[in-house]
Design a protein around this nucleic acid. Structure first.
Lengths: 353, 353
DNA sequence: AGTCTTTGCACCATCGATTGTGCAAATAAG
DNA sequence: CTTATTTGCACAATCGATGGTGCAAAGACT
């Protein structure tokens, strides 16, 4: 409460204290002082003053002048999901390692909110925007383009700038094949036993479904259309779809391809209301990885997307000068049942104990 | 590419276009124009110009002048965790509903990084900071205090400003009692059968442990010290602790109180390496809720913290003038096995299909 | 000693919005 | 028709940092 009082020190304060001009102080504190031929002793004086007075630059002022902010944005569909939150975690680490400040915001898969959110971020002069899982990536692109903001798509592709996404076709194939092969040869799956639930009208779902159908036709020799049940990315929609199926058939399909952990939660909600033994012969493949889901009391085969790989690739591509609007595929990984993989949190050192 | 070209429109552009002064334009666009007695027709003209030229205010300039930014910060330990990410999700909705912009950042439970991160946020002139699960809340407080920034603690309490946290003592009691009562009367739990794994040297763990020990002594009549095994909030530490126990006793305790889903993941990692039948008689209580964990092939009793309640309370308290540094307890909820609860995502409308 | 070069720094405009103040023109009051 | 009031807006300082430019003093060189 004494001297280092209420208001933050500015270069003007330090200018008075050091007897130098504000511009000299600025140059010293932003590192350009050698280029400006400031004497080392002057620099040291100012730096020590800055230290004792706890100077930190006002980023709004700096950003206003330089029209950069040091902020890097990540636009997510939602936070509350292990896939997206691990993307956020990994993204943050990358941004921080470049000395910038991550700003993670969600837009609920609403195209309108996506654009508005992007506009808000732009009004803070963010330096780059990573558009992740957007429902309308090209709509967000327009907004960014108009502001001259560098941006890139992740998870769901757009057509105007590069996109880094999972190889959903291959992942869909892998998962479908694993589900089918998980059934013993003496009780093989029939084409009508294997359903895909979840997903919506987006690129990822389309590709996964394409992979699903291709493998199904190849291995089971049939692929009825009704086996595809898109439900959107909402747990309760998925639950209703399972209820509807159950109402019609008195059971679930023996093999389930569940498109995303959110839809899998819908399956849980269904299960909570039905006796256990309905699921004795069930094999679930889920396009997403969750360690707890992997240990459920029926075989759960999962796909883990390569979050670290996607983020790394995205940072690599966004640094390029004028990258073509190309799709970069990153291979996902098949995870057998009862597998506990490590994640981004394992990279953190644990502090006490 | 035509006229609405590369650079963003400013009040000066609109000033020229409208024939008014920049200050008039500013007043019209920030809503203070009535107070400034601007003619309605002038305001309408400027507003329509702003519309057609897609004007959005430069927030850095506004923030510089007004020393407010419209940014509200949330400092998290980590993103990649359902508890914290649902806090983020809920926080975001609250901030957005107030017309401000949420900025969610994690600091890895590192006290030093917590302070640095807070300082960074402050340099962007954020308006408020919610300090969630900080290892050193009072350290962050110093930084905020020095900058005159309103702040509040969530999840882990500090001593300088109000804190909104779960009633961990009560939650610990509830969970412990539920674990004990889950065992049939003919094979009751012995004091040596019930262990607590996980947590660290923080307020939450202390309180949960206090609740655990109180109930244990009360219901089981004993409470050996070795039954408390703090492992930090790291999955691999927890795994090692389970391995160590198993090496000594050839089995796990029949009853497990697992302090957080992160530690529960450590249990999964342990389980992945051991045959299934080691867990036939196991009951797990976990201080955290995860829908998938709730359906694991052994009874899992969970605690769900009232995320919505905590966030709402925190926003309520932070708006008060000079709130005393008091702890506000929010009651958590006991979740029986095989329960699929809804979460913040269920509030979102699903767009297509 | 005189000229040229280098060193070291100060000055000032600038980024875009906000806001206190001042002052004409329009209107009302007498 | 004159004075008082209200209306409607422009002016200019300000927030804090940046970076181009200019210029005096110190040093090098002939």
């Amino acid at each position: 409460m004494a001297n280092s009082s209420k208001k933050k020190a500015t270069i003007y304060d330090l200018s008075v204290l050091s007897g130098s001009s504000p511009s000299t102080v600025s140059a010293v504190l932003n590192g350009t002082w050698r280029k400006r031929r400031i004497k080392a002793s002057t620099a040291e004086l100012i730096q020590s003053l800055a230290e004792t007075h706890q100077y930190t630059a006002n980023r709004q002022a700096r950003g206003l002048r330089s029209s950069r902010s040091g902020l890097v944005g990540l636009l997510l569909p939602v936070h509350d999901n292990r896939y997206f939150s691990s993307l956020a975690q990994t993204f943050e680490a990358h941004v921080r390692s470049k000395g910038q400040c991550p700003i993670v915001v969600s837009a609920s898969r609403d195209p309108d909110e996506e654009r508005k959110t992007a506009a808000t971020l732009i009004s803070y002069s963010i330096d780059e925007l990573f558009i992740c899982g957007a429902t309308d990536p090209d709509g967000v692109h327009e907004v960014c383009e108009a502001a001259g903001l560098k941006h890139i798509n992740i998870d769901l592709p757009g057509t105007k700038v590069p996109s880094v996404i999972s190889d959903n076709f291959e992942g869909g194939r892998l998962l479908t094949e694993a589900i089918i092969r998980h059934f013993p040869a003496d009780r093989p799956l029939q084409p009508n036993d294997l359903y895909l639930f979840g997903g919506r009208n987006d690129h990822a779902s389309h590709e996964r479904i394409r992979g699903f159908r291709a493998v199904k036709k190849e291995l089971l020799g049939g692929d009825p259309d009704e086996c595809i049940q898109p439900t959107g990315y909402a747990a309760n929609n998925a639950r209703r779809a399972f209820e509807a199926f159950f109402a019609r058939h008195g059971k679930l399909p023996r093999g389930l391809f569940v498109n995303s952990s959110i839809n899998f939660e819908g399956l849980l909600r269904f299960m909570a209301g039905h006796p256990h033994d309905n699921f004795a012969d069930l094999v679930v493949g889920c396009y997403d990885y969750d360690p707890f889901a992997s240990f459920l009391p029926f075989p759960v085969i999962m796909i883990r997307q390569d979050v670290e790989g996607m983020i790394a690739k995205a940072f690599e591509v966004i640094e390029e000068l004028r990258p073509p609007p190309q799709i970069h595929l990153v291979q996902p990984e098949l995870v057998p049942p009862r597998t506990a993989l490590t994640g981004p949190l394992d990279a953190l050192k644990d502090i006490d104990r």
